[in-house]
């Protein structure tokens, strides 16, 4: 699937006529309706849309927490639609990083342990896992809070831990679900700055949000309506971060 003549980078996640239907009593609801789209490597996408537009469903599918009712979804060329539950878990632990709106840290574990959870479920945890987790905690500014429990941290700090956790397994795709939804604007800016930084490093990020200013910071915007694509805006910001990186 290499298309050398195509200017867009090779897709990390590719949807092909994906439909997801839910049964609500006797009605059938189409949360996603024959959606086809490709997210390229190193891109930073904001997925926007009103509630009920299919944002969450799309995120669950992309996160391999759900399977399409029909159509195909490929991560780095692997068709996920045909995988069984264990294989999906494997993909989640190897290729995906999650950042949730409500942080979703495990209350009984401390910061370091929380960051290590994704590696906990890999059959062959990479060597130096703890060292890496320490480094990530350092990076998100929590190097001195390693043995704190989530309850002892502020919302912003918890979300930083969650981001560190999302990075620990070297994911090919980072999925953020309303990552700033529970934070005040000051803290939200810090988290968004962190995401910008990750994008600048070349990571593929997808953030689901309904806040316009969060969407405005992303490189590209995908707007959904009734389970279909409404608009696609590419390169709304002329990649300032990438240039900044080149200067350095």
């Amino acid at each position: 699937m290499t298309r050398t003549d195509d200017p867009t980078p090779p897709p990390v996640a590719e949807l092909e006529r994906v439909t997801r239907t839910y049964r609500m009593g006797t009605n059938e609801v189409r949360a996603l309706d024959e959606l086809s789209f490709a997210f390229g490597r190193g891109e930073y996408w904001a997925v926007m849309g009103s509630s009920g537009s299919g944002k969450s469903t799309l995120l669950n599918l992309l996160g391999c927490l759900d399977r399409p009712s029909s159509g195909h979804y490929r991560i780095e060329g692997v068709d996920v639609s045909t995988l069984d539950d264990d294989q999906l878990s494997e993909i989640r632990s190897q290729k995906l990083g999650f950042v949730f709106q409500s942080y979703n840290l495990i209350a009984q574990l401390n910061v370091l342990e929380n960051i290590l959870v994704p590696l906990f479920y890999q059959d062959d945890p990479p060597p130096g896992a703890e060292q890496r987790a320490r480094g990530l905690a350092e990076r998100v500014g929590l190097g001195n809070r390693l043995d704190h429990r989530p309850m002892e941290l502020s919302g912003g700090q918890q979300q930083r831990v969650a981001i560190a956790r999302a990075l620990v397994n070297h994911p090919t795709l980072i999925l953020a679900d309303e990552a700033t939804g529970n934070l005040d604007s000051q803290t939200a800016q810090e988290i968004l700055a962190l995401l910008d930084e990750l994008h600048a490093e070349g990571r593929t990020i997808l953030i689901v949000t309904h806040e316009p200013d969060v969407g405005a910071r992303a490189q590209h915007v995908l707007r959904l309506k009734d389970g279909r694509i409404e608009t696609v805006v590419r390169d709304q910001n002329p990649a300032p971060t990438r240039r900044a990186l080149e200067v350095r």
């Binding site: 190897q94 999650f98 979703n104 959870v117 906990f120 479920y121």
Partner: peptide, 16 residues
């Protein structure tokens, strides 16, 4: 339940 959801999302298999 929520902890189980988190662990599953982060890659825990059913048998784990």
């Amino acid at each position: 339940t929520r902890e189980i959801g988190i662990r599953r999302a982060l890659g825990a298999k059913r048998n784990q």
